[in-house]
Design a protein around this nucleic acid. Sequence first.
DNA 1: TCTACAGTCTACAGTAACTGTAGAGGCAAG
DNA 2: CTTGCCTCTACAGTTACTGTAGACTGTAGA
Lengths: 152, 152
Amino acid sequence: MSSMTIGKLSAATRVKVTTIRYYESIGLLDEPDRSASGQRLYGDTAVERLGFIRHARDLGFPVPAIRELISLQVEPSWDCAVVDQIARRQLGEVRRRLTQLEALEAELKRMITACEGGKIACCSVLAALGHHEQCLHEEHAGKEVLAARPSN
Amino acid sequence: MSSMTIGKLSAATRVKVTTIRYYESIGLLDEPDRSASGQRLYGDTAVERLGFIRHARDLGFPVPAIRELISLQVEPSWDCAVVDQIARRQLGEVRRRLTQLEALEAELKRMITACEGGKIACCSVLAALGHHEQCLHEEHAGKEVLAARPSN
DNA sequence: TCTACAGTCTACAGTAACTGTAGAGGCAAG
DNA sequence: CTTGCCTCTACAGTTACTGTAGACTGTAGA
């Protein structure tokens, strides 16, 4: 199978057809050969290249970084340290997001645990989000309850 | 300080001026009063509302969810379960992203550890990303470490 | 062969949640 | 009065795609 249409390439890489054309438009993929009627025809190198792009995107690398990685592949005599640095930068970014998300999870969990029914006027979720609360007399109200209860 | 310009509101809430105007344009913030010359003048309720929005955004709530939460605040006699459900949905989303990021962190760490200098032709980072490798003395992990892809 | 239908083409608009810019006018301090 | 920052509107740009319209192509079945 030395030559496949865009749909086959899409199926082979699980990248949508429109996305493949988009990658071509921004120069991540080379312009492929065309059939007599103008349809794109791809070879096996396109499958590899696109798989590379997809995997890098899955790992969260932004398009400019992928562009850089591809250019390094094309010029493979350079030092590995450049690639390593890009990967480290990406790892730092992932860890930063990870820390942030862990804090979010904790806060959301706390919010939900405290919310045991009742009216919205006293809802702890809204309270935790900054709602100025008025219901000091009701049992489901307030940040005191929120702070006092352990999370599950 | 019952009346402040958009710059003061921005400083008070750490939300950029342009973002405040954007929130107004999409109906998250009410249109404020204006001075004789047309400048926006905000009261303390705007600080509260904007703080609520910013906090919810920090927690990753999408704008439509925030819109919903605000409408619930305005009609506070409804049941708290609706708010609870929005928060739970958000928690699920956060946990999903968390799991994904943890897998990414592991893979990036592995990639970087394996990359101990040398030429790009043999770089394990590029290899892990799908580069067709010529360095047969090393066996790298396959592409399918991450089965969880958000869409498509 | 005809016909139905899936696949492909280009070009452009839309998405989320903002950010940035241009060009004009406003306001307070020195 | 001038300097310099603040604010105004309106619109374009960002990222990484996704969706749509309208036309053409390729293929399988009757």
